[in-house]
């Protein structure tokens, strides 16, 4: 089935996007990322360690730019200036690469987004030529506003970042999907494979996750499970599920019974 995910005019086979944080080591990051078969992979931008382990393995060595689309993200930014600055540094770091994930957080306890700051940062970055995949809450109105200012994908949370609580508000996610003219990806909150399938069955275009894989007992196996669940959920959505009925409906014919 040729059913690509198209973001900012670029086709991707995989509808699963993964983060690279919280892994035990670089090797586990590499193996889990490979097992997920994700093509878009998020990274963070941080200060280089001055004078410490100059030969430590670099993340970009295990994520070759010819194989992966790196998605720098503004994780950890609590205001517009920090988020804009992070995106600009990422663009310099990656030789003009302009696809970024914007998140402006509002609160350390919940990590819910500050949506007014997110909207303002998105406007600044779109004017500056960035292609923005934006993290937001599951508010259909805000999702629409973010699309209107020019974001190339809208990424509502399913549950708080790192919570693993699954799809808490499927009707809002459905509403966002129904209204959107850009790809909608669930970003944050997925805990296990069934959550990924549920999200995809709602009709979202893709899922971005990190902790659900990295914090599993066996991250590499969970990466495979998430890959399969994302595909299964997408196929079920495309296939169209049977209607729900209150009472039973026999699947063997009644005609021809001999008793």
């Amino acid at each position: 089935m040729n059913d690509p995910l198209i973001i900012a005019g670029v086709e991707y086979k995989s509808r699963l996007l993964v983060g690279t944080g919280k892994y035990k080591d670089m090797e586990e990051s590499k193996l889990a990322t490979e097992a997920s078969e994700a093509e878009i992979v998020t990274i963070a931008i941080r200060r280089s360690n001055i004078g410490q382990n100059p030969d430590e393995p670099n993340l970009l060595d295990i994520l070759p730019l010819d194989k992966y689309t790196l998605l720098p993200n503004t994780a950890g930014c609590y205001n517009i200036d920090d988020a804009v600055r992070t995106c600009r540094l990422a663009r310099e770091l990656l030789d003009g690469h302009d696809l970024v994930k914007l998140e402006v957080l509002g609160d350390e306890k919940t990590l819910f987004p500050d949506v007014s700051a997110t909207l303002e940062a998105a406007e600044i970055l779109v004017k500056d030529g960035f292609k923005i995949m934006v993290y937001t809450n599951d508010d259909p109105i805000m999702a629409k506003r973010l699309e209107e200012v020019g974001c190339v994908a809208v990424m509502p949370l399913a549950a708080p970042i790192g919570s693993g609580l699954g799809i808490r508000n499927p009707y809002n996610i459905l509403e966002i999907v129904d209204n959107a003219n850009v790809p909608v990806l669930v970003d944050a909150g997925v805990g296990t494979a069934s959550d990924a399938a549920v999200a995809m069955e709602l009709g979202v275009d893709g899922i971005l996750m990190n902790t659900a894989i990295a914090a599993a007992q066996d991250p590499v196996m969970m990466a495979t499970a998430m890959k399969n669940a994302t595909i299964a959920g997408r196929q079920a959505f495309k296939a169209g599920r049977m209607p729900r009925k209150r009472y039973a409906s026999a699947s063997s014919p009644i005609d021809g019974t001999f008793f």
Binding site: A90, L105, L111, Y135, I161, L208, M209
Partner: peptide
């Protein structure tokens, strides 16, 4: 002066 690089990260 800030010197930055890419590290593993998803959200947060």
């Amino acid at each position: 002066v800030e010197v930055v690089h890419a590290i593993g990260g998803g959200a947060v």
